[in-house]
Amino acid sequence: MTSSTAKPGQDLESLKKTVATLSALLTQLQTTTASSDPSKTTDLNALHLAHDTASLIRAHSTKLSLLIINKPFTPSAINTVLRELIAGPLPGLASAIETCNGAKYTEAMSKELQWRAQKVFVELGALVSAIPLDGQILSDDRKNGTGATPGKGSLAATGVLWEACDAVMELKTTGISGLMIKKAEQYRDLVKDALEELKEWGEEESDSEDEDEDSESDGEADEAQDAIDKMFGSQRHIPSDDPEKIRDRLESSKKRLQLVILMFGAVIKRRLKTLPALPHPELPAELKAKSPEDPGIVSCLDEVLKVMKKIPDITDELATAFYELDGPEIDKRMDECFFNGFAAAELLVLNWEGQKDEFTTWASKFQVAMKKGW
């Protein structure tokens, strides 16, 4: 009798210790970063490793989720699942993060995997914290998140963890090329949005025609309205006399923003979709014949992405300058925006084999078109 009651008690105490160990490990793993030591190279594919370990974490989380809500409550079974996580998948995912260094996988992919994997560690920690340590399965409220206790419930926590694991696993299929394409498309779409807003703003009529009729209005009321406009960011419109030539600047900017959007599309089609397999354990034959050294594809991609990322931010600042009818600021932001467009095209002017092609010719025409009329 004594031994039969002692065993469940021992299992529960063991479970408590394992939960504490796992929680501490997850906190530690959330700070894992890619190795900055270029000498630590391995033939292991970090994205494949991340996929496989995230898949195992997902499967183990499913088991764990079922064990904590179904009778009988078995601490030993839960303990086994947690120890398996500690022994294999979790260190494996951390190893994938460390292996996915920027020099081989691009800084963009390195940061993306790190961010997605850390999300897995965080959400697994949330599920582990839901494990009941009182020897009873979770109540319906704690399972569904419907009780007075704050939290989303174990079922919802499991679902969020599944999504985090799926996001990590997705990177294997997406690959470096796919990630670059996705980011370039996001930046292009932001520029498109800014262009559409500027078009709509340019079509709105100024209220200046009504100023003569309102000339007898109370001055204090006008000042109050100006203050309200500034407070709520009300946009000003191009006056009919347009002394600052804002309309001319707007038309020029719209044409060039359209060219920048075309540049994004050309880069995606002619460069990002034609990337050689990355990371490449061995250089493609046509490149290896020229030099055994890496031709700088990875560093080029990172540089191009940095330049492209700047363009939507500058475009937003350009739009703000138009709304404020600030001629000098418009000129400044236009120069910055189009300089970065030039830079992106110039970085990719040759194909990945170092040869001229259709994009090379297009890039030259693009640069000429951007200079016209400005």
Rank of each mutant, 00 (worst) to 15 (best):
S299Q: 12
F339C: 11
A221R: 10
K7A: 13
W374M: 13
Y187I: 08
L66R: 10
P295V: 00
C100Y: 00
L179Q: 04
F322Y: 07
K182C: 01
K7N: 09
L325Q: 08
E346V: 12
E251A: 03
A130V: 01
V120C: 05
T146Y: 04
T315A: 15
V122Y: 13
F342E: 14
E303Q: 10
D193A: 11
P312E: 10
A77Y: 05
L124D: 07
A77D: 15
E358R: 10
D218K: 07
S110E: 12
P295T: 02
E107S: 14
V160A: 08
L287M: 09
T18R: 02
L278E: 08
E329L: 08
L350D: 02
L138I: 03
M180P: 01
D331L: 06
S35M: 04
T158Y: 15
G151A: 08
K183R: 14
I330L: 10
G153N: 03
V307T: 11
S14D: 08
C300Q: 14
R116F: 06
T41S: 15
F264E: 02
L198W: 01
S61R: 09
D37T: 03
Q355P: 04
G354S: 00
A289E: 04
K371E: 12
S240T: 03
H51Y: 15
D189Q: 15
S253W: 03
E213Q: 11
V260H: 03
L347Q: 13
S253Y: 02
Y105G: 09
S55F: 14
K254Q: 13
I131D: 05
L133Q: 06
M231L: 15
C165P: 06
L272K: 01
S154H: 01
